[in-house]
Design a protein around this nucleic acid. Structure first.
Length: 260
DNA sequence: CGTTATGTTTCACT
DNA sequence: CAGTGAAACATAAC
């Protein structure tokens, strides 16, 4: 479930668990989850500690006491799991670190779309991966500039990590529901006001989701997440939620509420 | 057995 | 080069 608010949560989780623990071992059960040779990770992680965490979009950066930064992307099904007893090792913990205190840090990844990489700096990583500022900090000016000249559907654009780093599929649906904009509305046909509505909804969704620790059940009752399912009833209209594909991704929206 | 899944990367076109 | 759309990736769960 890792979009911006979930990754924010994972970061806080790591801050309160794996930070400042000396790494004594690494166990890799599938090296396809590593963007560099396993020996590189051993070289740069063993005997080091994580000293600081950062998040940019859906990417998490763990600064070490060594030279490199561990970059984690959770893919579609990733999450961290800090545990002590070996029998508690999660089934899908394909990558794992062990600390001097006896605890383990597992990188659970059922679908193996997540990965670890090593980077020299967050700035370089941001540039080479063409990431915008984090959606939480993004300025309206930068957002408007990114939309300039774009011709495709608004949903595709806000999910573009070079436009609003951190926005994923459920957030995009939520943002467009809150701003009453149809996911297939062409950016070129949007007014200044439409664009500002989307921007404001994006900020609102991010802040609410982070405040609620990405716990969907605690979201306000008018949030799409509560009825983001085909044929559920829209909070504002009596119409039913429709399911379509936009940019290859499953999209839920309220046809009465969200106008093209 | 076929379909689906909250993501990124790559590649062929315009 | 910039923008777009589709495919590929790997695998559990329904």
């Amino acid at each position: 479930m890792p979009e911006l608010p979930e990754v924010e949560n994972y970061m806080k989780y790591i801050d309160s668990t794996a930070l400042h623990q000396q790494i004594v071992a690494m166990d890799c059960r599938d090296d396809r989850l590593l963007k560099k040779p396993e020996s590189d990770f051993n070289e740069h992680l063993l005997h080091q500690e994580f000293k600081e965490t950062h998040r940019l979009g859906k990417y998490l950066f763990l600064k070490t006491t060594g030279k490199k930064i561990l970059v984690i992307h959770f893919g579609m099904t990733g999450r961290p799991n800090y545990y002590k007893s070996e029998e508690d090792r999660p089934k899908f913990g394909h990558l794992q670190l062990t600390f001097k205190n006896g605890f383990h840090f597992a990188f659970e990844n059922k679908r193996k779309f997540g990965w670890w990489d090593l980077a020299d700096s967050i700035t370089d990583f941001k540039t080479s991966h063409k990431l915008s500022d984090d959606a939480r900090d993004l300025s309206l000016e930068d957002f408007k500039n990114s939309l300039n000249g774009r011709k495709t559907d608004i949903k595709k654009i806000i999910m573009d990590q070079s436009v609003a780093a951190g926005v994923g599929n459920w957030m995009a649906d939520e943002i467009l529901y809150q701003s009453k904009i149809h996911p297939q509305k062409k950016v070129a046909n949007m007014t200044e006001h439409d664009i500002e509505s989307v921007f404001e909804a994006m900020k609102k969704v991010i802040e609410v989701a982070i405040e609620k620790d990405a716990h969907y059940r605690d979201f306000p009752e008018h949030f799409l997440m509560h009825f983001r399912k085909e044929d559920e009833t829209c909070f504002h209209t009596e119409a039913q939620i429709k399911k379509i594909k936009v940019g290859g991704r499953t999209t839920y929206f309220s046809p009465e509420w969200q106008k093209l």
